[in-house]
Amino acid sequence: MQTLIAATLNGLFMGSLYGLIAVGLSLVFGVMKIINFAHGALVMVGMYAVFYMWSLIGLDPYLSLVVVVPVLFLFGYFLQGKVINPVLKREFGRNGHAVILLTVGLTLVLQNAALLFFGAYYKAAKTFVSGMTWDMGGVVTSVPRLIAGVVGAIVILGLQLMLSKTDLGKAIRATGQDREAAGLMGINDYKIYNIAFGLCLAILGIAAALMLPMYYVQPEAGKIFEMRSFVIAVLGGIGSLSGAFYGGLIVGLIESVTAQVWSATAAEMLIFVVFIGVLLYKPSGLLGK
């Protein structure tokens, strides 16, 4: 029983973290209608940023957010502005396959650059919370996972408030709903794209800082999270932030609990069975329109 509670908690925490990563993917799709295949590579970039802040300057991963988040926001802003937008503009009115290929290319560039400069080695940050546990009457919970789960949920909630209450948030949503109409209302759509991509990177920076105390970084470290993100974003309804959050929780719970009552291999299968089941029943995803 205690293990089952521990597994459920672990599933919720990891699920919230998966949700946070998937939110970035969902946001980019919701606004720009781009499927970003570089998402996993960008998670990896965030992790290296956090890791080197820790190993070179000695900044704790959680504290490094103060630096990493603005830097990654700017990186995303300019990546969109200088690399993705020009292709988007040329592709305007066509199917947009070139942008998808562009994100695939970006993945290869980032991964191989990481391989070249940082090597294929596994790097992990040892912080004061690494390996720390919280024992509640036999239910042992990992503290970094607890922090990741709680902070992940708060960030998603904050982002949603920002999108629904602030002017900028409304402009982002308007652009996502109808780009031309938003343009007619005086919204600079390409600038909104830049901001949305910057936001996605900032979110990934937060996720990276939450992961590093319990995980390692390596040029391919983002791959698994990318795979999870695609499933979660589509499961929850691509473009929907709360959908991504709930999707994350569902995947996290299946992963953690199935392994207890069955096996880890079965969990991997079951995630996709549920995924296919939801798509058959509701093709737009749980909360998709």
Partner: peptide
Amino acid sequence: DAPYPSSSSDLTPVILKIKQ
């Protein structure tokens, strides 16, 4: 008897199973 996919993002589920 606990097989697992080596590319897992989280192995806590397997670890909890060992514990039990």
